[in-house]
Write a protein that binds this DNA or RNA. Structure first.
Lengths: 238, 238
DNA sequence: CTAAAATGTGACAGAAATGTCACTATTCTG
DNA sequence: CAGAATAGTGACATTTCTGTCACATTTTAG
């Protein structure tokens, strides 16, 4: 077994704070560290960019008014960077900057906070964004009458119980869940799951439907995949 | 064969942005393109109508305050058009326009967002509406230096060429792409791919790393998965 | 430089998945 | 109702995937 450093289940997140007011910056860093985050600090846009060459933060907090460039410009630069482009950014603005703030937001920040902001509020938002970007909590779920599919995690739950499917069955069910109550033609299913230029019999769809139904049968939902004679299949709740 | 939804998942969705503020418009377009949408832009109501003669967008984002007509008027016109009548419309309004906004909604917008709005929020709503109207989501892509992963479609492209991986390799690469330049401990990889309560040797990770590297070798990128001795692995571009 | 530790790698056996076929059952048409 | 069309289903051979092992190679510590 390998020796593990602190990163693992309790993997720490790196937060970069870009704020020129030292008092605020240190205060934020202190709070964040107390909450278990790793913090990196920058007092200006250029310092921030320097930091970004060293670390890949999981989230950046940027003050709107920086001495050398506006927070917006900094965001633009970050968003242009191929590596860190997608990092969530939270913008801090003073109340007086309200109207500009709007623009800043629209230009690429994921969230904003008006100063003075409570640390609690900031923590909450930081956690929310980290969850979202890491896909830990808010992985995208498709739900239909008790069938919950977490497409990212490749997991399905029916009425609370777990259901495991092969990849093809999974894709098939996903297609149905994305189109509940809609008639899906065989050809459409083929195109969608096997791609447009593959040579697969269309009866193959039937067999996979069968397999999916068998899997659903364990949860008494095999009737949910309905045959539409001459055309294809449909997912209904019944 | 039957009538069926005409769009496949691998097809990009067209989004029309109607917004007179150039900064906001371009930022939105940038974000949307980054998310894999095709964008079309209009700075005024008339430009929008012109665009609509050319393309049939899958969704339209309209700013309430346009120079030549109100967003509401534009919506009215769109809703009168026989061809595009049904397209989902998301309206953007400033907070001051609150009461009017409600009216706008009643008159044909499917959703609205109050500025300042976060890009995440906007994306989420756009996706939601596209799902509803098409049943399909624009696939969400993860990209890192030429490696493009379409997690939904389960497809990977390296420098344009296709790459096929087993499910485990796929998940592994996905984890790396979500954490480029970050050290991923074996335990972390295990937890993330096999789950926390499974009994898999941690050396198994090594073998899958090997397999992933072999797959990447075909594209001369096997060096991108770097070993961090004693801890785990890291994805770098080099 | 050497021994120990860690990682790379090929091989393997069992499991799972896949597409097709043949046959059966059901539904539709006239 | 009979024949035709369509869908359900079990079986199958093949391929792919998976986790583990044993041994090779590399790196590190002393």
């Amino acid at each position: 077994m390998a020796t593990l450093p602190e990163k693992s289940a309790s993997m720490q997140n790196n937060i970069l704070i870009v704020e020129d007011d030292m008092a605020i910056r240190e205060m934020m860093a202190f709070s964040l560290r107390r909450e278990g985050f790793d913090t990196f600090k920058a007092a200006s846009g250029h310092e921030a960019l320097e930091q970004l060459n060293q670390v890949n933060p999981d989230l950046i907090v940027i003050d709107w008014g920086l001495p050398d460039m506006s927070g917006i410009d900094l965001i633009d630069m970050i968003r242009r960077d191929e590596v860190i482009r997608e990092v969530p950014i939270i913008m801090l603005t003073a109340r007086a900057e309200e109207s500009d703030k709007v623009k800043g937001l629209e230009r690429g920040a994921d969230d904003y906070l008006t100063k003075p902001a409570s640390m609690l509020e900031l923590m909450a938002r930081i956690r929310a964004h980290l969850r979202r970007s890491h896909g830990f909590e808010a992985s995208h779920q498709i739900e239909y009458k008790g069938i919950v599919m977490d497409a990212d995690a490749h997991e399905i739950t029916i009425d609370g119980e777990n259901l495991s499917l092969s990849l093809t069955e999974f894709k098939l069910l996903k297609l149905f869940l994305q189109n509940p109550n809609k008639l899906l033609a065989r050809e459409h299913i083929l195109n969608h799951i096997w791609g447009r230029n593959t040579f697969v019999e269309d009866r193959t769809v039937d067999v996979h439907i069968l397999r999916l139904r068998k899997a659903l049968k364990k949860h008494n939902k095999e009737k949910w995949v309905q045959t539409v004679r001459g055309v294809g299949y449909k997912l209904v709740s019944q």
